[in-house]
Write a protein that binds this DNA or RNA. Structure first.
Lengths: 333, 333
DNA sequence: AACAGTACCGGTAACGTTACCAATCACAAT
DNA sequence: ATTGTGATTGGTAACGTTACCGGTACTGTT
């Protein structure tokens, strides 16, 4: 097992002290130009690569941030991550990514791990059971960004999209297309998000003078099957509706599946609007009209806000960044 | 900026030496049971969390592995990553994930970064330009697993799926469904993978006594549009074909899009088989018949093989693990 | 009473790096 | 000749942790 080349090896090979090597390596003054060149040449020849673990210990800064998601393979999170990693790389940070599988205990462990790793900051989409674990981060003054969800209770910076506007946009669009009885197939896992989209839905109805009906609003668990089954239930029960606003594109896919199975024409009989604009939204049939959020931008924004906190070292302010959403018109509505 | 609690703080608070604290923390012998309890209590009260950076430096082991992908938001990679992270977590490892954006220079930088971070191992899907960067890892004896692609030249362990079998399976299935003129819409980016699927395609034709025709085989760049355009081209040129074997599901989606636009019935007029079984494969219309690879298993396998190398510390053998593939029958063929 | 054995605990070095201080040397200014 | 100055270099401590070694006090054996 070969060992890594250390600054000491370079020093020996170049016949200077480790200090001189350090000076050469870091472009510091107080070093002869010739010596510097010679040292750098030796370092290159020996294949010296700085040991980041030593630097982390010395400076108490790791240049690593942690990202904790419930499931990084979910297309929403995987795109957000891409944005985070992109910006992190640009600023010479690395990213440790962990999944919680929506389990609070795993989340707690993950946060402990991140603390142990001495990450310079953390981006997290918390499960919504309890917040002790997150608060422990604040106590340690580890800059933390809450991503995607809304928690005014947690006095921490948040980056998310304008879900009220998104809910309004989708519903208003359906109404403008002549729909009057619009089912809201809402999510429950992210309560805050679901609530805000619901708010947008209600606002749009009100602004258009349409009566709100409890019988058209449903909260269902995650997954395509869930939406598929619920929609089937609507159709079997004879529920009258001519539009559907789905919490996300996954739901929309499930709903469309069920509608087609019952011979409903989309959008003629029933219009469907999704949410997220996942990359496959345009390839399903009919292509999905949906509320788009710029997931990569969301990731980038989160990193940049985090970096700000990391640099300022001050107690992070509970700043909130709300990103715009827009409606993508396709064929399903 | 509050600092972290160190072993020294605990020692002071408990009125013992740092050695005793260390012994208590690590369940080492040579410590009084009472003292141990007291120390652990103090440590808990103070919120002590071990500093992983110090351990990394001390032991020369970081319990971090690196993962380098071209694009972690690609559904294939994001699922593989999930498998890697799952297993890593189980073994108390963390994962740093970096994207190369298919750029060799970025890949080279990423590998340098991983070396600098002193990762205990690396899982990588190399771009296929050059291999100097990867060889530098081997020189440093950083255990490295090549994932997804085939490089006998690189004497490194590989984990990938049986692409020859996959190509055979898809083509054979189409033939069994009565198809005689089967277009192969092959990829080029992963040359080795594309070649093996091509081999499977040829084998299936031969075994079924169908003549191979050059005019039915195409290599196209990545992306839905790419497949969409190529298929349109076929249809406009009057190329005769009754089946399509697509390099991946993305291609299949593009192809189906074009076929539908030209009023072709799928699978009656033209049968289409994809590859990968991405999670949306079953929701497109018609649902996609495709060759499935267990991406999570692939990630898990890669981690386990890597862990083996990390533990053995021996020069890693060029072991190759080939995972099975299977055909998922749906409606498109 | 002398000694060995054992249980427990603390001092120190080391991992690789850089910051700080001290040292050396050449040369110019007095 | 002495002193000061600037350029260059090296020694050492420190970051947090554990391994190794040495020390102390108590017990039991003869």
């Amino acid at each position: 097992m070969k060992k890594f080349i250390t600054i000491r090896d370079v020093a020996n090979a170049a016949g200077v002290s480790i200090n001189t090597v350090s000076r050469a390596l870091n472009g510091k003054p107080d070093i002869n130009e010739e010596t510097k060149k010679r040292v750098l040449k030796v370092a290159r020849e020996l294949g010296y690569v700085k040991d980041a673990t030593a630097l982390s210990l010395k400076y108490g800064l790791t240049r690593v941030i942690g990202v904790i998601f419930e499931d990084s393979s979910n297309p929403f999170f995987s795109e957000v991550f891409k944005g985070i990693e992109m910006k992190a790389r640009e600023h010479n940070f690395n990213v440790i990514l962990m999944n919680t599988e929506k389990n609070y205990d795993i989340e707690e462990d993950a946060i402990k791990t991140m603390i142990s790793r001495r990450v310079d900051g953390l981006i997290i989409t918390p499960t919504q059971e309890r917040f002790e674990d997150i608060e422990s981060l604040a106590n340690l003054n580890i800059p933390t960004i809450i991503l995607g969800v809304h928690f005014k209770e947690l006095k921490l910076p948040e980056v998310h999209t304008d879900d009220v506007a998104g809910g309004f946009l989708a519903t208003d669009y359906l109404i403008k297309k002549g729909r009057k009885r619009i089912v809201l197939l809402n999510g429950l896992s992210y309560k805050s998000v679901a609530q805000m989209r619901f708010e947008g839905y209600v606002n749009a109805l009100r602004d258009n003078g349409i009566k709100y009906l409890d019988e058209l609003v449903y909260e269902i668990p995650e997954g395509v099957e869930s939406a598929y089954n619920k929609t089937k239930e609507f159709l079997l029960s004879g529920l009258r509706f001519d539009g559907m606003f789905c919490f996300n594109d996954i739901f929309a896919i499930g709903a469309i599946e069920a509608l087609k199975e019952f011979g409903k024409r989309i959008p003629e009989d029933i219009s469907v609007v999704g949410y997220d604009d996942i990359s496959y939204a345009k390839y399903i049939s009919p292509s999905l009209t949906t509320v788009a959020i710029d997931k990569i931008l969301e990731g980038q924004t989160a990193f940049e806000l985090l970096l700000e906190s990391v640099k300022s070292k001050a107690k992070v302010s509970a700043k909130e960044i709300v990103l715009d959403v827009k409606l993508i018109e396709r064929k399903s509505a």
